[in-house]
Design a protein around this nucleic acid. Structure first.
Lengths: 205, 205
DNA sequence: GAGCGCATGTGGACAGTGTCCACATGAATG
DNA sequence: CATTCATGTGGACACTGTCCACATGCGCTC
């Protein structure tokens, strides 16, 4: 039986709900993910979701995973665009690309970005599980391999980088920094990336 | 007529509502600020608030101002504790104290901190109005006066510092970094502050 | 000092939400 | 073919923000 049509009562309701919810999240953020509206869009009665999710929160946290994956993919795309060949310069460029992509995604997909980080209480998993975090860790490891970052400097560098770009994203999104022009935003992002890079490696290349 | 008792229908209902709302915000964050509960706690009927606020959002944004003021006061207190006398070292210490106080407040008062930065749509005011932002700007100016930060480096430094501590606060609060022990948190905060300081000034004192 | 107006507070209503319940349906199993 | 159990339905409840018509009484005007 092809996964299209309706092999069972509805077929893959769970996936359909997550998809509809993600669409809602994209356009309206966490508060836009209304259980009854998700059901409506999936062409199913309210309550149907309760056979697949204990809670609205459980659906939200599933959507959050989807959003985090999209963020990671966006970062990966930007990473792949780096063409620099000198190892140290390459690692530095890839670090900057990571940060740039992060803020870029937040501004391009504010709803998804917000959902990706909305407190969910579910999954007591540490930061190691978050896909974007893993990616950042790899890039920092490259920096160490290239000799641009000392092993001592590597410790906790993840959190420093992440905090900086995440904070900037939030402040630009709905914090006091919204309203900046695209040009101003660009300058601020570069300044932040340069500062972090210099702070971690002691120089900027 | 003393502002106690009830000089008019209720007296200063507006202020009472804001206070009750702030209490709710402190214990339960933005979603905890429920119009009807605020009214209940103030001993007034629901709807009464509508004579003083157009909207729940308008009340929330008033509470946000209160929360921002408390944040600023907490930062100011920590600033005043710096005793270093050498100008450059003093300015650096004060910058670190500012950042430390910011994260400290976020962790100590998560509800108020979140409310202080929840998107309110009201007041299109730029970042210049936010009290904590002004404080940070002053400290950075001290750094320039003390010769520890170049005027070019000063440009945009506000945003860099703010982004870093804000991002860290958010990630520690309900992001993937919650669950860190107090000790781990302390280490991360210091690492972040040192990195920013080195990135801005080129050295760490 | 009497009377009135308008800001202030009240009670009721409505739509919308998340969640619980009892019930319906039908695919898979014996 | 009958039964079972996961899956989906419809109705209900408590709760929310917001709008409405109405009540109340302070402060102004005559």
């Amino acid at each position: 039986m092809p996964p299209s049509s309706k092999p069972y009562h509805h077929g893959n309701l769970r996936a359909a709900l997550v998809e509809a919810g993600a669409e809602l999240a994209r356009s309206s953020g966490p508060d836009g993910v209304v259980l009854r509206e998700v059901a409506r869009r999936t062409g199913v009665s309210h309550n149907a979701a309760y056979r697949h999710f204990a809670d609205r929160d459980e659906l939200l946290s599933e959507i959050a995973t989807v959003a985090a994956d999209q963020l990671e993919q966006a970062m990966q795309r930007r990473l792949d665009e780096v063409t620099e060949s000198d190892p140290a310069r390459r690692a530095r460029a890839r670090l900057r690309a990571t940060g740039r992509a992060y803020v870029e995604f937040a501004l391009a997909e504010p709803g998804l970005f917000t959902v990706a980080f909305c407190p969910t209480d579910v999954e007591a998993a540490g930061p190691d599980e978050a896909a974007p975090y893993v990616l950042l860790g790899q890039v920092l490891d490259e920096l160490v391999s290239a000799g641009a970052l000392s092993p001592e400097g590597r410790m906790g560098a993840d959190v420093v980088c992440w905090s900086a770009v995440h904070g900037l994203s939030v402040l630009l999104l709905d914090g006091p920094l919204r309203g900046l022009t695209a040009e101003e935003r660009g300058g601020v992002v570069e300044k932040l990336l340069a500062t972090i890079e210099r702070g971690l490696t002691g120089a900027v290349g």
